[in-house]
């Protein structure tokens, strides 16, 4: 058995033992997300527009992660709408910044990987860079949206008569509880993955100026910042979506 298969099966067993049906769902969503990512890549290789492919993949991935992750149907629906809104805002932000910073493709540090490769590709790597940045934030958006929506759903369950204004305040309070640890999840996730690059910088004695303008590093830091912004934006958007949905539910109830 290959190592990946063994680890995958072990993860399935752990998830089912600890989380039961929910564990199984979590495992399925991970496998599904991998398939979606791989499929998106193949479509890009067939010259479909990378950004369009990414947007469609993004919405599907958010739906799968959120609906397979949550329990309460109303709060998961709200989380999904909010996360799609964040995704759209993020795309509007990412496209101009990536055009500005031009971090697409490969840097001088990649030359070993590129040896013997043809770089006549016919795919706009600027669009690929936009896609990469969007895809890398999807998990963070879904997680934050679920956390806020689930937290608010619980508050609503315990205090069904809470005013909408207090509900909004509660959303920000839940947000302030998750923001510190979520930022660190993102920081370590990204910087852990790029440890080798930093060791390279230190070993070759890059100057601060070289580091701050390096294509690979700037691209990486931009991805961390996009993820962080998406998490920050998720907090008010999910809260407002929850308040709006509750307002509508109460109107119906009055009628």
């Amino acid at each position: 058995m290959g190592t990946i298969t063994a680890l995958g099966l072990l993860l399935l067993i752990c998830m089912v033992v600890v989380g039961g049906t929910q564990g199984l769902q979590a495992w399925i969503s991970l496998i599904f997300n991998f398939a979606a990512l791989f499929f998106a890549m193949v479509l890009m290789a067939f010259h479909l527009s990378p950004v369009l492919v990414t947007l469609v993949t993004g919405v599907i991935v958010l739906a799968m992660t959120i609906f397979l992750g949550g329990n309460d149907s109303n709060s998961t629906m709200v989380a999904f709408y909010a996360s799609v809104a964040v995704l759209i805002l993020l795309v509007i932000l990412i496209i101009p910044i990536e055009h500005w910073a031009q971090i697409q493709g490969f840097g001088q540090e990649d030359s070993e990987d590129l040896e013997g490769m043809s770089t006549i590709l016919g795919i706009s790597y600027l669009n690929v860079a936009v896609s990469t940045a969007i895809l890398s934030t999807l998990g963070a958006i879904a997680e934050a949206a679920i956390a806020i929506a689930a937290g608010l759903a619980e508050i609503l369950e315990q205090h069904p008569k809470i005013t909408l204004k207090n509900l909004q305040g509660a959303g920000f309070k839940v947000g302030s509880q998750i923001i510190g640890t979520t930022f660190n999840t993102l920081f370590f996730g990204f910087f852990g993955g790029f440890l080798a690059l930093f060791i390279w910088f230190a070993g070759v004695h890059y100057s601060l100026g070289e580091i701050l303008n390096d294509k690979i590093l700037v691209g990486e830091v931009l991805m961390v910042l996009f993820s962080m912004m998406s998490v920050i934006a998720t907090i008010p958007l999910t809260t407002w979506a929850m308040v709006a949905s509750e307002r509508q539910a109460r109107k119906k109830f009055v009628k």
Partner: peptide, 25 residues
């Protein structure tokens, strides 16, 4: 059980999405 699925996916997208440019090459 409720938070583990989304968290695993956060890391998955961070670790795997950034391989996209090289994989396309």
């Amino acid at each position: 059980g409720e938070i583990m699925g989304p968290l695993v996916n956060v890391l998955f997208f961070i670790f795997v999405a950034e391989t996209l440019p090289l994989a396309l090459l």
